[in-house]
Computed example of a mutant assay.
Amino acid sequence: MNSAIYTYLRHLREQKGWSLRKAAEEVGVSVSYISLIEKGVHPSTEKPPKISPEILEKFAFAYGVPKEELLMYAGYISDQLAFDMENPGATRYMTIEESKSYYELNRKTNTNNDLEDMIENADFLTFRGRLIDTITKRKIIDMIEILTND
């Protein structure tokens, strides 16, 4: 678990001006649990306490922040978006494992994934069975620039 989550949760509570007791009431956990989390060290094990994604979701709701933000701070997900294969057209945050796999794959393949380069350098680029000529390729790149505000 990333240690940044403990100080961040304390920061969010203090930003709201809440006591430990008020935060515990709002989150739905004990005062001692909030205190343990904010200290970042379990007194009997001297190790960082684990916070489940479900508990982080409760903190997010109480503190008014996106749950993905807390999940990123805790190290459950990365800040990279992935396509959600179960919901076509949707995106979701990658898990840390997916993010590591993604970067490892890119490092291993050592390919240039720049869309402009791919479009310009493709010898036989087609769309719906029709060959795309150089002028049309340039128009496509121009449209992508407009769509991505570059």
Rank of each mutant, 00 (worst) to 15 (best):
E145V: 00
S78W: 03
D142G: 09
G75W: 04
L115I: 15
K100W: 03
G75C: 06
T95P: 06
L147S: 09
I37N: 00
A4E: 15
P49Q: 04
I144H: 07
A122S: 15
E97L: 09
R13W: 09
N87L: 08
R130G: 02
R13F: 05
V41S: 08
P53V: 05
Y6E: 06
Y76D: 07
M85S: 13
I51R: 03
Y93M: 14
L131A: 11
R128A: 12
Q15G: 09
T109A: 12
E97V: 09
V27A: 05
K22I: 13
Y33P: 00
S35T: 08
I77S: 03
T7R: 11
K47W: 02
S52Y: 05
L71K: 10
E98N: 07
A60V: 07
E38G: 06
T95I: 07
N2C: 08
P66W: 10
A24R: 12
R10P: 02
D117F: 13
N149Q: 13
I132L: 07
E86L: 14
R130P: 01
G89E: 03
D123R: 11
R130I: 09
I5G: 03
I55C: 10
Y8R: 12
V31P: 00
K100T: 12
N121E: 14
N121R: 10
N110G: 12
Y93G: 00
M72F: 13
G89H: 05
W18T: 02
L12V: 03
G129R: 11
Y63A: 02
I51N: 01
L20W: 01
E57L: 02
S52C: 02
N121K: 15
K22C: 08
K50E: 11
P88I: 08
I119P: 06
L125M: 10
K137G: 00
K139D: 14
T45E: 06
L9T: 01
K58A: 12
A90W: 08
T7E: 15
G64H: 10
Y6Q: 06
L81S: 12
Y8F: 11
K39L: 09
L9N: 01
I34D: 01
D142T: 08
E120M: 14
E69A: 08
R21K: 15
T134Q: 14
D142P: 01
L9F: 02
L36D: 04
N112K: 03
I5V: 14
Y6T: 05
